[in-house]
Amino acid sequence: MTTHPDPRVLVVGEALIDLIPAQDGSLTPSPGGAPANVAAGVSRLGTGAAFAGTLSTDALGSLLRRRMADAGVDLSLCGESDAPTALAVASPQPHGTRYDFHHHDTATFRLAPHTGGLDGFGAVYVGGLAAVVHPAAGAVLATARAAARETVLAVDPNVREDRSLDPKEALHQLRELISLAHLVKASDEDASQLWPDESPTAACRRLAAEGRLVVLTLGARGSMAFLPDSAPIRVPAVPVAVVDTIGAGDAFMAALLAGLTGLDRRPVDLAPPSVVELLHRAAMAAAVVCGRTGAALIGPCRST
Rank of each mutant, 00 (worst) to 15 (best):
I17D: 04
A241D: 14
D229W: 00
S56K: 11
E14V: 09
P228E: 04
T2A: 11
A15C: 10
P300D: 09
T57V: 13
G127W: 06
A88H: 03
G127T: 09
P267D: 01
A83N: 10
R212E: 00
V42L: 13
P92H: 04
Y125N: 10
D82L: 13
A49V: 10
A271N: 05
D18Q: 07
G262I: 07
A107R: 11
D244Y: 00
R65E: 15
H172L: 10
P272C: 01
Q193G: 13
R266L: 12
A148F: 01
Y99K: 03
G222P: 09
G32C: 11
R265G: 01
S274Y: 02
Q193F: 08
T85L: 05
C301Q: 12
H103G: 12
E150I: 06
L279D: 00
Q193K: 15
F101V: 05
L279Y: 01
S303T: 13
T3N: 11
A254P: 06
L207S: 09
L87R: 02
G61E: 04
L77D: 12
G96D: 02
A39E: 11
A248Y: 00
A237M: 05
C78W: 14
D162N: 14
P232N: 07
L171C: 11
L194C: 06
D100V: 15
G249S: 01
R292H: 14
C290H: 00
V238W: 01
D74L: 08
I178M: 15
Y125E: 09
G120F: 11
H95C: 06
V242D: 00
S43D: 06
N158C: 07
A15Q: 08
D244M: 02
P157R: 05
V155N: 07
R206I: 01
A107Y: 13
D24A: 05
A50S: 15
G249E: 02
T115Y: 14
R221G: 03
V140H: 13
P200H: 08
Y99V: 00
R175C: 12
A50V: 14
C78G: 13
T97H: 03
C301R: 07
L177M: 06
D156H: 03
V276Q: 07
A137Q: 11
A202W: 04
L87M: 09
A186G: 04
A181M: 03
E198N: 13
T54E: 14
S274L: 12
A231T: 08
E150F: 05
H280R: 08
G25S: 10
A59C: 10
H4A: 10
D70L: 14
P5Q: 10
V132R: 09
T245M: 01
P167D: 08
V275C: 02
H172E: 15
V132W: 08
P35M: 15
A88K: 02
V268R: 12
